[in-house]
Computed example of a mutant assay.
Amino acid sequence: MAGRFRPVGLVAASTALLLTTACGGASLGAGEDQQSGPVKIGLLVPQSGTYKALGDDMKQGFELYVAQHGGKLGGREVEIVVADEGETADSGKAAAEKLVKQDRVLAVSGVVSSATINGVKDLFETGKVPLVGSNASPTTLTGTEYIWRTSYVNDEPGKALGKHVAERAGGPVFLIAAGYQAGKDEVEGFKSTFLPAGGTIAGEEVYTPFPGTKNFQPYLAQIEKSGAKAVFCFYAGGAAVDFVKQYRDFGLAGKIPLYAPGFLTEGGVLKGQGDAANGILTALNYSADLDNPANKQFAPAYTAAHGTAPTTYAMASWDAAQVLDKAIKAAGSTVTSASVNAAIARVGDIDSPRGTWRFNSGGTPVQPWYLREVKQGANTVSSELGRLGG
Rank of each mutant, 00 (worst) to 15 (best):
G61F: 01
G61T: 12
F62D: 02
F62A: 11
E63Y: 00
E63M: 11
L64P: 02
L64S: 14
Y65P: 03
V66N: 01
A67Q: 00
H69S: 06
H69F: 09
G70C: 13
G71L: 01
G71R: 06
L73S: 06
G75H: 15
G75C: 11
R76H: 13
R76W: 09
E77R: 12
V78S: 02
V78I: 13
E79Q: 11
E79P: 04
I80H: 05
I80C: 07
I80L: 12
I80R: 01
V81I: 10
V82C: 07
D84R: 07
E85P: 01
E85S: 05
E87G: 06
T88E: 03
A89K: 15
A89Y: 04
A89S: 13
D90W: 08
D90Q: 10
D90L: 11
S91P: 03
G92R: 03
K93P: 05
A94D: 15
A95F: 08
A95I: 06
A95W: 04
A95M: 07
A96T: 05
E97K: 15
K98S: 15
K98Q: 09
K98V: 09
K98R: 10
K98M: 12
K98Y: 11
Q102C: 11
Q102G: 09
Q102W: 14
D103L: 02
D103Q: 12
R104D: 07
R104C: 09
V105I: 13
V105N: 03
L106H: 05
L106T: 07
L106I: 14
L106R: 01
V108S: 06
V108T: 03
S109L: 10
V111M: 01
V112T: 13
V112G: 03
V112N: 08
S114V: 05
A115C: 12
A115Q: 12
A115E: 14
T116R: 08
I117Y: 03
V120K: 01
D122A: 14
D122R: 08
L123P: 04
F124Q: 10
G127W: 01
G127L: 15
G127K: 12
G127F: 09
P130T: 00
P130A: 14
V132C: 04
G133E: 10
S134V: 07
N135I: 00
S137T: 15
S137R: 05
S137M: 14
P138I: 04
P138W: 09
T139S: 13
T139N: 14
T139I: 12
T140K: 13
T140V: 15
T142Q: 11
T142S: 05
G143Y: 11
T144E: 01
E145M: 14
E145I: 07
E145R: 12
E145W: 08
E145D: 11
Y146P: 04
I147N: 00
I147E: 00
W148E: 00
T150P: 03
T150W: 08
Y152C: 07
Y152S: 02
V153L: 11
N154T: 04
D155K: 04
D155R: 08
E156G: 13
P157Q: 05
K159D: 05
K159Y: 10
K159V: 10
A160N: 13
L161V: 00
L161W: 01
G162W: 07
G162D: 03
K163D: 09
H164D: 10
H164Y: 13
A166T: 09
E167D: 15
A169C: 00
A169D: 02
A169V: 08
